[in-house]
Amino acid sequence: MSYVGPGFEPSPPRRPRRRPLTVALVALVPGALLGWVVYEVVGGAGSDGGAGAVGTTASASGPVSPRSSAASSAGSGDDKPGGTPKASPTPTASAPAVSGPLKGKVIVIDPGHNAGNFQHTAEINRKVNIGTNWKECDTTGTATNSGYKEAEFTLDVAHRMRTLLQAQGATVKLTQDGDRPFGPCVDERARIGNQAGADAVVSVHADGSGAGNRGFHVILPGSVNEGAADTRSIVGPSRALGERVAGNFVRATGSAPSNYIGGGTGLDTRTDLGGLNLSTVPKVFIECGNMRDSKDAALLTSGAWRQKAAQGISDGIVSFLRG
């Protein structure tokens, strides 16, 4: 339908002689367009590093696997779509062994008791020679009024200490790692530290005294020279270790020294413990708190506080070994 109005006249009819020219133009237009597209893709666009360059690079290098593609994109946070892919990062060698101020030092951590001792009372009641006399292989340890076992506490703190000390380059051994049904006996615990040639041994415990008795104390070996026990060579270095542990424990945890043992010093010397009597390397015990006191128990059952306890004991060991 055509509109006819003032000033508008129908177009005159086309003359037959123009039809061949029209057909020729119609035939030429698609060809010209196709040629322009080919030029832009193959020649023109490739000269300015745009999308055409990426296309030709990808086709020249062959198909890219999903893994190598992901590695390229992960190589930089500023890769942009359409940019030139970056090469995959060269694989790095395995991380070297941890080095630190305690490299070459051997530390033995003795998590007191064993959670399985409750099921093996006959075995742990067996008597062993502690040098000066005979005592039970081990005991069950104590627990909070809510049932949190001393053995659970000691192993948790030992694990935290191991992580801290290994980060400083030390070789760390545990006398038990929850990997045995009961024990070991007190004489074996001492033997583990001796055979390791430990530079320091700390036995981790929590006390089971009466309510109202609060605070920590470090137990030092007294001078013993009887039977299989001879602590004379380790009394001095063990005291130095114990003093460093006590001081750093206060700083890390904020806990006060025991109000019922040690006369406020946080230090107690004993000659009746097989783990100390049979040791030939510097060794101390630490009673981190009283599980039977509700206020101390609240600390001992807190993971955050146990981390502080592990830090304090570890700092004491580091201080001792570094002089």
Rank of each mutant, 00 (worst) to 15 (best):
G262C: 00
Q307M: 09
A200L: 06
E152G: 07
S223K: 15
G193Y: 06
D187H: 11
A70L: 15
A122I: 09
D156G: 02
S209V: 01
R239S: 10
G104L: 08
R244P: 03
F285N: 14
T142R: 06
V202N: 08
N145E: 08
K127A: 12
R162C: 00
Y39C: 00
V235M: 10
L278E: 03
G183I: 04
G62A: 04
R189Y: 04
D293A: 02
N117R: 05
D179F: 05
P12Y: 00
G222C: 06
A298S: 15
K149P: 04
K173H: 11
E9W: 10
P66V: 00
F153Y: 14
R189V: 01
G141R: 05
S319E: 15
P16Q: 11
D293V: 05
G112K: 14
V284K: 11
L165C: 02
G52P: 02
G62N: 08
S223H: 08
A51L: 14
V128R: 13
S72P: 01
P89E: 12
N129L: 02
V172Q: 06
G266T: 01
A297W: 03
R67V: 02
D187V: 03
T265F: 09
I192Q: 12
G274N: 07
Q176N: 14
T163D: 12
P30R: 13
I192P: 12
A53M: 09
D268G: 04
G131Y: 04
A211F: 04
R232L: 08
R239G: 07
G303P: 02
T271Q: 11
A256S: 15
Y148A: 06
R189T: 07
S68I: 03
L25K: 11
A297G: 07
L102I: 10
T90P: 08
E150P: 06
D48H: 14
G263H: 05
K149N: 10
K308V: 01
R214A: 01
T231C: 05
Q176L: 05
A74N: 14
H205W: 06
V106A: 06
G312M: 03
V37I: 13
I313Y: 07
L220D: 07
F216R: 00
L299M: 12
G178L: 09
G55N: 08
V23G: 12
N133V: 03
H113N: 04
S258I: 00
F320A: 05
A309N: 07
K308D: 06
R239M: 08
S294Y: 01
G197A: 02
R322A: 08
A298Y: 05
L33C: 14
V23E: 12
S88N: 12
F8C: 09
P6I: 01
I286C: 05
P85Q: 09
L164N: 12
K127L: 14
S72V: 01
K173A: 02
V157F: 08
M1N: 13
V108P: 09
L278R: 09
L220P: 00
S99V: 13
K80M: 14
T22I: 11
E136H: 13
A71M: 11
G274F: 04
G222L: 04
G242F: 02
T269C: 07
R292H: 05
G43D: 13
G46T: 12
R15C: 05
S47W: 10
A71S: 13
E152P: 02
P20R: 13
S47L: 14
I219Q: 06
L241Q: 07
A27L: 15
T280M: 10
A24G: 11
A74P: 02
A122C: 04
